[in-house]
């Protein structure tokens, strides 16, 4: 027992430098942000009072939650179909599919956002094509609104949705699917009674991951929203950098952190979070 305790102590020493580094450069600034939200412009809870009184604060929160929810649902749908296809593909095809999913991850989020702008703007490829084909008379408003933000965010999030779901689907023994068919289940029943329930942990994990990621999105909404549709991160930037209202900005930042922690806490009871962040079970 003593030996084991000693060995445990030894392990902790090994991560001490990393722990100190994290405390100094990560935890401390966050605590400072938390502190500012209670002290600027004068000590008290008046920044948090705005959550209940200010319509503009509430609008930003509602917009953010709505965009994040829609993004999560769409990214999960697209990601699920992709993962299903990849999980059931043969080994060679699977490698190519995974590469195709991962390549967008290596391209800067800035480049991707501007690429969407060129595609979706009034004289962009999509509008020009539709007008050329005579399907529409007036260009559609595809960008600098919520629609544009959601397109960009879904595009960014699909790989993050695919990876946990694919991991969970690949753990499903293909013999279970064969067994279900052999026992008389048509393909649809095999999917809904066997495949879907078994892939559910991955689906939930991907949902949590995508939702949390979306909450703090900055560049994509800033470019594709064109400043008209504000999400939380951009609003915080606006408060702190342009309006120099540190108190309000840090209040919202704190709310963001709290929301993320609460979401994680709820889902850690439902699924194994280690799976979400890629650690082996």
């Amino acid at each position: 027992m003593a030996m084991a305790a000693q060995r445990q102590g030894g392990w902790w020493l090994l991560i001490l430098p990393a722990f100190l580094l994290m405390t100094a450069f990560y935890v401390t600034p966050i605590l400072q942000v938390l502190a500012i939200s209670f002290t600027e412009p004068q000590p008290g809870l008046q920044n948090y009072e705005r959550l209940f009184t200010s319509e503009s604060v509430q609008r930003v929160i509602v917009t953010t939650l709505r965009i994040c929810t829609i993004t999560t649902v769409l990214a999960l749908l697209l990601g699920y179909v992709l993962s299903y296809k990849i999980a059931l593909a043969d080994e060679r095809a699977r490698r190519w599919w995974i590469l195709a999913v991962l390549v967008p991850l290596w391209i800067s989020v800035l480049v991707r956002a501007f690429a969407w702008v060129t595609l979706l703007r009034r004289q962009g490829l999509v509008n020009e094509t539709l007008m050329g084909a005579g399907l529409i008379q007036e260009p559609l408003a595809l960008v600098w609104n919520e629609f544009g933000i959601i397109v960009g965010m879904v595009h960014y999030m699909v790989p993050y949705a695919v990876l946990p779901m694919l991991a969970s689907m690949r753990e499903i023994d293909p013999r279970l699917l064969a067994a279900a068919r052999g026992l008389g289940a048509p393909r649809g029943t095999v999917f809904f009674r066997v495949f879907l329930p078994l892939s559910l942990p991955g689906l939930i994990a991907a949902g949590v991951l995508v939702f949390i990621f979306s909450l703090g999105f900055y560049i994509t909404p800033a470019i594709l929203g064109g400043g008209k549709t504000l999400m939380v991160a951009e609003w915080i930037g606006l408060q702190i950098l342009d309006l120099i209202r540190w108190g309000l900005g840090t209040m919202m930042a704190t709310m963001l952190v709290v929301t993320i922690l609460v979401t994680l806490a709820i889902f850690s009871r439902v699924v194994n979070l280690r799976r979400v962040f890629g650690s082996g079970a």
Partner: peptide, 15 residues
Amino acid sequence: ERRDFGMVFQGYALF
């Protein structure tokens, strides 16, 4: 699924 045969798989394949 339309053959109506029972099958016991290697490793059993229980759900």
